[in-house]
Design a protein around this nucleic acid. Structure first.
Length: 478
RNA sequence: GGCGGCAUAGCCAAGCGGUAAGGCAGAGCUCUGCAAAAGCUCCAUUCCCCAGUUCGAAUCUGGGUGCCGCCUCCA
C-alpha cells in the first residue's frame, strides 16, 4: 500500500504540518502518562484511545512504531495518599498502575512498547540535573536544584507566553530558595516522611518535569517524532520539559507536539483532584468497550468532548447500526455463493466502495480525523445496505466481501469500534441449532402456518435471539 | 490581568477560500403475511453578532458577545 501524505497539527507552531518521520519506516512516540494516585477516568481514556488509533493507523501505512509512555510514580499526591493510608508511596503507585492497565485492557487499548517509571530512573535524572547545572541553566539552593528560566531565552514558546507575564500571574507563594519566581524545581530537598534518594545536593527527589526529558531521551533518543499528552499539560509541564531538554542537548527533541482536548463532565473539566470524574472501571461495566471508543472517536481529538449520564445511550443507535450491518454481512456471506459474472450494478457499487475506502484513509491522514472517518464508515453502511435491499437474492459475494473487509479492517482493526464475534465453545453448537430452527420455521411459513412461525420468532426473541426475515432469507443475532 | 481554544439544523458532529459530510431525532414512502431491519425522499439559501478583504468567506482580517481551558496538581 502506498503511503498517504499525513498532516499533523503541531501545538508548537500552532499550524497543521506535513508529517515527515525522522526515519522513513519508523515512528517514535512519547506520550505523557498518568500519575498513579487514584482511579483511571474517562479523561485518561481519551488520549489512550486516540494514540491507540494513531499507532494502528501508522502501522497500516507501513511504519513500525515505538511508543513510550511514562508513569510519574514519585509525586506529592502519591505521597499524600500513602501517608493517609499508612503505606509506602510505591505501594500506592503500584496499585494504581495495575488499575490503569486493567482499565486500558478493558478498553481494548494496546500496550505501549515501554512504561518507564520515575522511581527507576533516579540516576539518569541526577545526571541530567548535573548537566543543566554545569551548563549554567540550573542552580543549587538549600538542597534544592532549580531550573533558571531566564537562562533559556526561548522559554514560553510552546504556551506562547512571555516570561514577564508568567510572573505576574503567579498566585502561589514563591519559594524563597528560588532566584526567580518562574524558576521550577529539578530536584527537591527531602522532607520527613517522603521517599528520598541520595544526590550530589543531598537527600531528595526529582521535580515534576525532569523525568519526561530523561526517559524520552533514554528510550527514544534525544530526537524523536511525536510528543503527546492532554492540553492541560502544555503549561507548565511541557513548557518546562522543552526548556530542560533543549538546554541539556542544545536542540529540540520532539518534532511534533500533539495535544488532545479535555473531557468535560457537567460543563467542567473531568479531573481527579476535584472528584469530578467517571471512572473507566465503572463505565466498562455499563457499556461495551467498542461503544466507549466510538464515543471518544466521534469527536476530533483536539476538540473538547462532553460527557453526561445517558450520553452513551444517545449515541448507541448509530453505533448499533454499524455493527448490525457487519453481522448481517457475515451471515449473508456464509450463504452466498456467486458463480455468475459481475454485472454493471456490482461493478458500480464496488467502485463506490473503493472510493470510500480511500476517503476513510485520507480522513485519518488529515490530522487523525476520526470523526470524519466514522462518517465515511456510515456511507459505506448505507451503500452496502442499499445494495442488499435492491439486489435481493442477486447479491454478489465479491461486493459483500469488499464491504465487509473494509468495515472489519478499518472500523474493527483501526478504530476498534466493532463488537467482536462471541467466539466461545457454546457458539459452535448454538449456531447450527438456531439455523435448524429457522429452517423449520421457513417451512412453516411456506405452508402459511404463520401463527406457529410467529410463536417461534417471539419465543426466540424472549431468550435473546432476534430473528429478521429478509429477501435473502431469515437472519438472526444474539 | 496574561495566554490558548470554541460558538455550524431539535441534539451530537465534520468542514481549514469555491458555494453546508455523517449520526440521532422528526415527516412521508418502499419492501413485508405480520414483525423487525433496511432503503429512498424531505429536514441549515445558511454557519453567535457587526464591519472589512475577495469574483467568491462557515472558512481570512478587525471589533463585539457568550462559553471552556491553562497560568497551582492535572490526560
Amino acid at each position: 500500500m502506498s503511503q498517504l501524505k499525513i498532516k499533523v497539527y503541531n501545538s508548537l507552531t500552532r499550524k497543521k504540518e506535513d508529517f515527515v518521520p525522522r526515519d522513513p519506516e519508523h515512528v517514535s512516540i512519547y506520550v505523557c502518562g498518568v500519575t498513579p494516585y487514584s482511579q483511571t477516568h474517562l479523561g485518561h481514556a481519551r488520549p489512550s484511545v486516540i494514540w491507540d488509533v494513531i499507532k494502528r493507523f501508522f502501522r497500516l501505512q507501513g511504519y513500525t512504531v515505538t511508543h513510550v509512555q511514562n508513569f510519574t510514580d514519585v509525586d506529592d499526591k502519591i505521597i499524600e495518599r500513602a501517608n493517609q493510608e499508612g503505606l509506602p508511596a510505591l505501594a500506592i503507585s503500584k496499585r494504581y498502575i495495575e488499575e490503569y492497565f486493567d482499565s486500558m485492557d478493558a478498553l481494548g487499548v494496546e500496550r505501549a512498547s515501554l512504561y518507564p517509571k520515575v522511581s527507576e530512573h533516579i540516576d539518569e535524572i541526577i545526571d541530567m540535573v548535573q548537566t543543566l547545572i554545569d551548563g549554567g541553566y540550573a542552580y543549587e539552593s538549600d538542597g534544592n536544584v532549580f531550573f533558571h528560566v531566564a537562562s533559556f531565552p526561548e522559554y514560553g514558546k510552546l504556551s506562547n507566553q512571555r516570561r514577564e507575564d508568567l510572573l505576574e500571574g503567579t498566585r502561589f507563594e514563591v519559594d524563597p530558595a528560588k532566584r526567580d519566581a518562574a524558576d521550577f524545581a529539578l530536584w527537591k530537598k527531602a522532607k520527613p516522611g517522603e521517599p528520598a534518594w541520595d544526590s550530589p545536593w543531598g537527600s531528595g527527589r526529582p521535580g515534576w518535569h525532569i523525568e519526561c526529558s530523561v526517559m524520552s531521551h533514554k528510550y527514544l533518543g534525544t530526537k524523536f517524532d511525536f510528543h503527546g499528552g492532554g492540553a492541560d499539560l502544555i503549561f507548565p509541564h511541557h513548557e518546562n520539559e522543552i526548556a530542560q531538554s533543549e538546554a541539556a542537548t542544545g536542540e529540540p527533541s520532539a518534532r511534533y507536539w500533539v495535544h488532545n482536548g479535555m473531557l468535560n463532565l457537567k460543563d467542567a473539566k473531568m479531573s481527579k483532584s476535584t472528584g469530578n470524574f467517571v471512572s473507566v472501571e465503572e463505565l466498562v461495566k455499563r457499556y461495551p468497550k467498542e461503544l466507549i471508543r466510538y464515543y471518544i472517536l466521534s469527536t476530533h481529538y483536539r476538540s473538547t468532548l462532553e460527557y453526561y449520564d445517558g450520553k452513551l445511550e444517545e449515541i448507541s443507535k448509530g453505533w448499533r447500526r454499524l455493527n448490525d450491518t457487519v453481522i448481517n454481512l457475515r451471515q449473508l456471506m456464509d450463504k452466498t455463493k456467486s458463480d455468475r459474472e459481475l454485472d454493471e450494478k456490482d461493478r458500480k457499487v464496488l467502485e463506490v466502495l473503493d472510493s470510500l475506502q480511500i476517503d476513510f484513509l485520507e480522513a485519518l491522514a488529515d490530522d487523525f480525523n476520526t470523526a470524519m472517518a466514522i462518517g465515511v464508515l456510515f456511507e459505506i453502511v448505507r451503500e452496502v445496505n442499499g445494495y442488499m435491499s435492491e439486489q435481493g437474492e442477486r447479491v454478489h459475494e465479491a461486493v459483500l466481501a469488499k464491504a465487509l473487509t473494509i468495515l472489519e479492517e478499518y472500523g474493527g482493526g483501526v478504530l476498534g469500534i466493532l463488537q467482536e464475534d462471541e467466539v466461545d465453545g457454546q457458539h459452535e453448537l448454538v449456531e447450527p441449532l438456531i439455523e435448524l430452527i429457522l429452517e423449520l420455521r421457513e417451512e412453516l411459513r411456506q405452508e402459511k402456518n404463520f401463527s406457529l412461525a410467529d410463536k417461534i420468532r417471539i419465543r426466540l426473541g424472549e431468550i435473546g435471539v432476534a430473528v429478521e426475515d429478509t429477501p435473502q432469507g431469515p437472519r438472526w443475532k444474539v
